[in-house]
């Protein structure tokens, strides 16, 4: 039966929509993808991929503690996300250990703490859904939280869009003309923590960093304009989320993994065929035949 409905594209798309959980998953994941995609263009240009990885892993104990105390999990995640960054900064400044080592050291420590806490605190925490995401099993209170955080991040990024671009491009100039660089630094980190929190519901803690860097990297290969880069990044993130969820529905695959794989394939496509920066420079190729 599944195979029959598969034969038409129409039912491939519409059938899953008859399920309430699928409608919710598609909507929520698109929203989360849009938020992460928006932030992604800043993170890739700033070179904060490792920082994104660190923050997203470090939120783990926060999520566990918040669940145990009955608090909104985003609160716990946020505290530990920002805390990890502060700790990285502190250790880097007070020791001779190199930054990437400190980042790796701190986030694995936090992550390990989270795992230990899960095993100790006997509650109804589903480790699997934290690690790998569970967009299909998202609860109503999670929906509200996700929408609130997403809106907040989008508003913050929209207001400070140009300042953040300047901060990523030339912080020294920003400082020279009296723009508060300290504020922008922590604004970007705050948005990163918040985006990691909403992102982990879609694809889980382990893969959330992909949501934060892959769309930006894809867009970077396709354009030389910052605004276009943001738009392409958001679009490619949303499209991969939709593809990932549909594929996982029809082929019964892990949803988080499918979403990230879809993103990876879109990146590979851009890597190979981007008009100017792809391996096969299509622009040159076609220009040669004119």
């Amino acid at each position: 039966m599944e195979l029959c409905s598969f034969l038409t594209l129409d039912s491939f798309i519409t059938d899953p929509l008859t399920h309430d959980f699928m409608r919710k998953a598609l909507l929520m994941s698109s929203l989360v993808a849009a938020v992460c995609g928006f932030l992604s263009s800043y993170l890739t240009l700033k070179g904060w991929a490792l920082m994104g990885d660190a923050v997203s892993h470090s939120v783990m104990p926060g999520v566990v503690v918040a669940y145990a105390l009955g608090l909104p999990f985003s609160l716990g995640a946020f505290i530990f996300g920002v805390g990890s960054v502060a700790l990285i900064g502190f250790i880097k400044q007070k020791s001779r250990v190199k930054e990437d080592t400190v980042i790796g050291l701190v986030f694995t420590g936090f992550f390990a703490l989270g795992i230990v806490l899960v095993s100790k605190i006997k509650s109804n925490i589903d480790l699997h859904s934290i690690l790998f995401g569970s967009p299909l099993g998202i609860s109503l209170s999670d929906v509200k939280q996700t929408m609130f955080i997403s809106l907040l991040v989008v508003i913050l990024l929209s207001i400070f869009r140009k300042d953040l671009m300047l901060y990523c491009f030339d912080p020294r100039h920003a400082k020279t003309v009296g723009i508060n660089v300290f504020f922008l630094h922590y604004l970007l980190l705050t948005c990163l923590s918040l985006a990691a929190v909403v992102g982990l519901q879609s694809v889980g803690i382990i893969l959330v960093v992909a949501m934060l860097i892959t769309p930006g990297a894809t867009a970077y290969l396709l354009t030389d304009k910052f605004d276009n880069m943001t738009m392409i990044s958001v679009l490619s993130a949303i499209i991969s989320s939709l593809i990932g969820i549909y594929i996982s529905f029809w082929f019964d695959l892990e949803t988080g993994g499918s979403i990230v794989l879809a993103q990876t394939f879109i990146f590979l496509f851009a890597f190979l065929f981007a008009p100017r920066y792809g391996i096969f420079k299509l622009k040159k190729f076609f220009a040669g035949y004119k």
Binding site: L45, L166, D170, A174, V177, Y220, D224, F226
Partner: peptide, 19 residues
């Protein structure tokens, strides 16, 4: 500076006015 940053001449010069 990062010369690969996706930004045009106009946008860079406009940054002089941001402050």
């Amino acid at each position: 500076i990062d010369s690969q940053f996706p930004i045009s001449v106009w946008d860079v010069v406009m940054m002089g006015r941001y402050g």
